Computed example of a mutant assay.
Amino acid sequence: MRALKSGVTLTTYLLLTLCCCGFCVAEYRPPWMRGEVSGPSGVPTVLHNQTKVQQQEEGRNNEKREKQRPRLLSRRYSRLVMSKGSTVTLNCSVEHAGDVLVSWSRGEDLLTVNKLRYTSDDRISPLHEVSSRDFNLRLSNAQHNDSATYTCRVATQPEQVAKVSLDVRDANAVIFGTYEVSVAAGGTLYLLCLVLEVYDIPEYILWYHNARIIDYTNPNINVIIEEATRSCELQVRHMNFTDAGNYTCQPSNAAPATTVVTVFKDTGRKKGRTQKCDDCVLFLQLGATFAFFTLSFVIAFCCHARRQHLTMPWRRYSLSDDVYLPPDYCDKIL
């Protein structure tokens, strides 16, 4: 009976021990789950790795947001010179604009905001299309009082600004040569018109003869326009006395220029003498140039020979490259 009680007691202790061990095992967590293993900065390894992953994710998100942030692409400052009466477009490009407000102002005066105009000046108009990154400002028929600094502002934090300094100048045309031009009857008239102080291509350049527009369809008239140089050449063949008078060059964006053309009667003999005289002048110029260089060479050669003769007088007796020494010269040395 005593042995039975001892066995029951032992069994009870064993059961209690197993229960306690099971509870402890259930509550036990490995060190890597409890965060007891420290990283390089004293932070548990698991937490350190999680923090690092979160920081990388936040960095990528910030970089993505920064790329999608409205960014001004235009130059911060530029200068533009144009002629009076011209039309100019000021550019302001914004990447990823979205719903941000982009405005143009002149000094303290607000001109436009996005596609809306806030000025009573009809010459100013905003140019912007939906989903376009260009917020441009167009100014037509520019005048001297339009010379100012125009500012494009992007309403971000911080604000992004681009400035354009506009300078409006007077443009004028000039006919190359003298004020009066003389042409022989039956000859060809050549007039070259240059447009100065103009920075945009003229829409047209007209020629007038005594306040009358010249007919470009006339087979004796030829007009050549060079857009790159802003010039226009007028050629009138077989000139007669009725073609004399005032010739005016009128560009679309510059003040006109006028020259007076006279037609005189000429003979073939006079023309031949003139051509022969021109040939003689050219020949004389070439001959004078050749004579000048020849004379300079001869003088330089003579001066060099004279210098050698004075410093070493015995060289005149030498018949080869060996130097000839006179006997008295050798006695002096000895």
Score class of each variant (00 low, 15 high):
residue 173 A to K: 02
residue 109 D to W: 00
residue 114 N to H: 03
residue 160 Q to Y: 07
residue 132 S to H: 11
residue 163 K to H: 04
residue 127 L to S: 07
residue 99 D to P: 00
residue 91 N to A: 12
residue 106 R to T: 03
residue 174 V to N: 03
residue 157 Q to N: 14
residue 96 H to N: 15
residue 166 L to P: 02
residue 161 V to C: 07
residue 114 N to E: 12
residue 165 S to M: 06
residue 96 H to P: 00
residue 126 P to H: 09
residue 155 A to V: 02
residue 171 A to D: 02
residue 119 T to I: 05
residue 97 A to P: 02
residue 156 T to Y: 06
residue 102 V to F: 05
residue 91 N to R: 08
residue 168 V to H: 02
residue 122 D to S: 15
residue 167 D to H: 06
residue 161 V to N: 08
residue 121 D to F: 08
residue 166 L to D: 01
residue 135 F to L: 05
residue 98 G to K: 10
residue 146 D to Y: 04
residue 97 A to Q: 12
residue 168 V to W: 01
residue 113 V to A: 11
residue 149 T to H: 04
residue 96 H to W: 09
residue 162 A to S: 15
residue 117 R to V: 11
residue 101 L to S: 13
residue 171 A to L: 01
residue 100 V to R: 09
residue 125 S to K: 15
residue 171 A to C: 08
residue 116 L to N: 10
residue 124 I to T: 01
residue 167 D to S: 10
residue 113 V to Y: 00
residue 110 L to Q: 12
residue 120 S to M: 11
residue 147 S to N: 06
residue 105 S to E: 13
residue 135 F to V: 03
residue 166 L to V: 15
residue 112 T to H: 05
residue 167 D to T: 08
residue 124 I to L: 15
residue 158 P to C: 11
residue 105 S to A: 14
residue 169 R to F: 01
residue 96 H to D: 08
residue 119 T to E: 07
residue 159 E to K: 10
residue 143 Q to Y: 01
residue 173 A to I: 02
residue 109 D to I: 09
residue 160 Q to W: 06
residue 123 R to E: 03
residue 166 L to I: 01
residue 166 L to R: 02
residue 109 D to E: 15
residue 164 V to A: 08
residue 155 A to F: 03
residue 101 L to E: 11
residue 156 T to F: 02
residue 147 S to C: 04
residue 96 H to E: 15
residue 165 S to P: 00
residue 93 S to R: 08
residue 104 W to H: 06
residue 174 V to S: 05
